[in-house]
Write a protein that binds this DNA or RNA. Structure first.
Length: 374
RNA sequence: GGAGAGAUAGCGAAGAGGCUAAACGCGGCAGACUGUAAAUCUGCUCCCAUUGGGUUCGAUGGUUCGAAACCAUCUCUCUCCA
């Protein structure tokens, strides 16, 4: 079956929504943070650790799995869930972000996008149809349309042509999509231009996708601009369908996104900064490599319910990180992932009580507050 | 006892008259990271200040306009032979 989004409550003081998403691999609440597992693994984390972090859904990537190990092998394995032993819902990105991170402007054509493989340099050509075909084989629960994720800034003229092409790509992808157990999402682009975000949202909705996302965010713009982008897009996105903000992110961005009506988030930060020695905390991000944690025998956060905080000290994790031991990045990935998911739990609680604006004020003042008394 | 080789920043190691406060690596200290070409990348790492200044290359003395580099003596290390 396709996913089913149930809108349970809309906050009085903001545009935040409380909902659930039913999938073939279980039902989860929204807003929700999705850990990123690009290459069929959330880096350093086992599925059991993801369940323990209460991840509702995870994300994987078409582009990377296309190159290695290839969609046919994953199909042979019985699909992505079986292949990676993950029994929760999985969303696959289309490769659209790799248009941003890997392709050059001249490589983008109406037909599709030319890539040079980051693995062996070979020439690749990804089209909207191919992206969907690959995702059909991967058998994720949610597939994403193949879009162009333009950098920031580009001209209004470029962006207009880009959203129109992304729209044509969405249509082309939808036409070849043929997996009854997989839902397909459209992507709203348009940069910081209100008229283009509106046009993109309205036209994409006309194609009647199973859900919609906001793309082209966190590509170099400042915070104010980012929140406007989200606002401009969600304003015109269907009320009765899931809204997914792609590639975001930071705790405060998740709160700001939620306030603007976003239900789903994904971001590499939780695991990437973990491998780089950083941890999210209610009092802001901390760098465990810092000398001041050398003899700090307290957990990252006293009040955190994650496996790492219940069992390990900052001093030990610092030792692991500075010694280049993988367990350090793993323990921090567990903490950071749990941190963002717990944040969405708190947001849901606040939405239920129509107290999200107040929650934001309290969170931000603590997060950005004076850290000298730690 | 004899014959060689060597001593350079926290460590390893380049440098063989001026372009050298001294490459590079490690270690150390910070920073960045938002649909993962990322267990990666960037900066700093003799002392003091903002430009700039002050002390350095085992020690001492010398040659030279100028020495980490050349010479002498000394100290210490290593290798080989007895």
């Amino acid at each position: 079956m396709k996913i089913k989004y149930n809108l349970l409550h809309e906050e009085i003081n903001s545009r935040a929504r409380l909902g659930t998403i039913e999938t073939n691999y279980g039902t989860f609440d929204t807003p929700m943070f999705m850990p990123v597992g690009t290459k069929a693994t959330v880096k350093t984390m086992t599925p059991e650790e993801l369940y323990e972090c209460k991840a509702g859904i995870i994300l994987s990537n078409t582009y990377h799995l296309w190159l290695r190990p290839g969609p046919d092998l994953i199909k042979k394995a019985g699909g992505l869930h079986k292949f990676m032993n993950y029994n929760g819902p999985i969303l696959t990105d289309s490769g659209g972000f790799q248009v941003f991170s890997l392709a050059k402007p001249k490589d983008i054509t109406e037909e599709g996008v030319h890539f040079k493989s980051h693995i062996d340099g070979s020439n690749l050509f990804l089209t909207p149809e191919l992206s969907i075909e690959i995702q059909n084989k991967l058998d994720s629960d949610i597939a994403m349309s193949f879009d162009e994720c333009p950098p920031y800034p580009v001209t209004h003229d470029y962006m207009k042509r880009s959203i129109e092409r992304t729209l044509r790509w969405a249509e082309r992808g939808k036409r070849v999509h043929n997996n009854e157990n997989q839902s397909l999402f459209g992507i709203v682009q348009g940069g910081e231009f209100p008229d283009l975000r509106m046009e993109s949202a309205i036209e994409t909705a006309k194609l009647e996708f199973d859900g919609y996302s906001v793309g082209g965010v966190s590509v170099g713009e400042d915070k104010e601009t980012k929140y406007k982008m989200i606002e401009y897009a969600t304003k015109y996105m269907p009320r009765d369908k899931v809204r997914y903000l792609m590639g975001v992110g930071e705790p405060i961005d998740i709160i700001e996104g939620t306030i603007r009506g976003i239900d789903l988030f994904d971001c590499v930060l939780s695991t990437r900064i973990a491998r780089h020695g950083n941890a999210f905390t209610r009092r802001g991000k901390i760098n465990l490599k810092n000398l001041k944690y050398r003899e700090d025998f307290a957990p990252i956060e006293e009040e955190c319910d994650c496996y790492s905080c219940k069992n390990y000290t900052k001093a030990y994790i610092r030792h692991l990180i500075t010694s280049d031991e993988t367990l350090g990045g793993r323990l921090l990935s567990i903490h950071n992932t749990r941190f963002l998911i717990k944040l969405t739990e708190d947001l849901r609680m606040a939405i239920k009580e129509d107290g999200l604006i107040k929650y934001r004020e309290e969170f931000i003042s603590k997060y950005n507050g004076d850290k000298t008394n730690e």
